[in-house]
Simulated scan of single mutants.
Amino acid sequence: MELSLEILSWLFVAALVAGFIDTLAGGGGLITIPALLLAGVAPLEALATNKLQSVFGVATASATLFRRRLLVWQEMRALFFAALAGSALGAASVQLINPQMLDWVIPLVLLLIAAYYLLAPKAGDLETRPRIRALTYQRFWVPVIGFYDGMFGPGTGSFFATSAVALRGYTLLDATVRAKFLNLATNLAALAVFALGGELVWSIGLVMLVGQALGAWLGTQAVLKGGSRLIRPLLVTTCVLMLIRYFWTG
């Protein structure tokens, strides 16, 4: 697939902006997937290529967080593999499941996330008592969110972060930090499945991954400096924008 320099430049910028936003609040796919479709990439190839560039963004963010000792492998290992398994299953199922089934599920979840932070403005400010056991979160919620990411994707970071705040009692900053690494797992698994299926458009993916990595690095610096004060409004805004997109395209 041959594209002009102008279109490739546009895709680079789209990936850079998506990497920045995705690191802070999730929802980078809201930018990159429509950009790929507008560039003439087929839907399944767009999903696959989006995973290629996304994985470099979350890998950049995760590496920075590990260096700052905000992430510890021993604490994240079981969650990482749970997210990996869920995403692999989702990516393998994407050709067997009618994606229209998500047309009402995703807007509902996005609405609940936005309402949660708007109606409970202090949610995630302080660590609270967990509402479910760690094992339940690991064996059910993480794989379910991973499955969604493997099958579709946009908003996964928001889902991981909000579930950790609401169900496990983390602060919003800690939940966002952990969400980056879980998002790395889901992207890696989906990327492997799509690569085996030959769905990747490498020329586009390689250009976008550079922009995604740069945007993710900038976003990580913003997370470390701005904390939850910066994350919360972006997370709500991202959810609202994704809601608008679903209803507009629906």
Results as ranks from 00 to 15, higher is better:
S4V: 09
T220E: 04
K51V: 03
S93R: 08
Q53K: 07
Y116V: 06
E199M: 13
V55Y: 04
S163W: 06
L182H: 01
I244P: 00
T186N: 01
M1F: 12
A161N: 05
L224V: 05
V240G: 06
I21A: 06
Y137R: 08
S203G: 13
L167N: 06
L70C: 07
V58E: 06
T237L: 15
Q138A: 12
F12Q: 02
P143K: 01
G219R: 10
Q100K: 15
Y137E: 03
L89W: 06
R245L: 07
Y170H: 14
A222C: 12
L182D: 01
W202E: 06
L111G: 15
L184Y: 04
I33G: 03
L11G: 00
N183V: 13
W10I: 11
W104R: 03
V240R: 09
V210N: 00
K180S: 14
E6Q: 09
L111S: 14
I231A: 05
Q53W: 01
I97T: 09
F66T: 03
G198P: 07
G198A: 08
L84A: 02
Y117P: 04
Q95A: 14
V165G: 08
A25M: 01
M101P: 02
A46E: 10
A115E: 11
W73T: 11
L16W: 08
R232I: 07
S163D: 09
P121E: 11
F181A: 07
L102E: 02
F20R: 04
Q221V: 00
T128Y: 08
L191K: 08
L96H: 12
R168C: 07
I31D: 00
A46H: 09
T237M: 15
S54F: 05
S228H: 13
L96T: 13
S54K: 02
G197Y: 04
Q95H: 14
L38G: 02
D22W: 01
A134W: 05
A166E: 05
G19D: 12
D22C: 03
V210W: 11
E45H: 14
G153F: 03
A120T: 11
A63V: 10
S4L: 13
P121Y: 14
L182N: 03
G150I: 06
T60V: 09
E2T: 11
W248D: 04
V109C: 01
R68D: 10
G155D: 00
G157T: 05
E127R: 14
K225L: 10
I244R: 02
L167W: 02
M151I: 15
F140S: 11
L191N: 03
W217Q: 14
L37A: 04
G124H: 01
L102Q: 04
F160L: 08
F181R: 05
S87K: 01
P121L: 04
I113S: 01
A42P: 01
G227I: 03
A48M: 07
F80D: 02
L52R: 04
L214Q: 00
S54T: 05
A46V: 15
L200A: 12
L191F: 14
L8W: 12
G86Q: 05
T49W: 10
V193T: 06
A134R: 09
P143G: 08
L84I: 06
A78T: 13
G155Q: 01
M151K: 04
M208D: 00
R139F: 15
Y170Q: 15
V240W: 04
A216E: 07
L108I: 14
R178W: 06
A63R: 13
G250D: 05
T220W: 10
Y137N: 09
W141Y: 13
A189C: 10
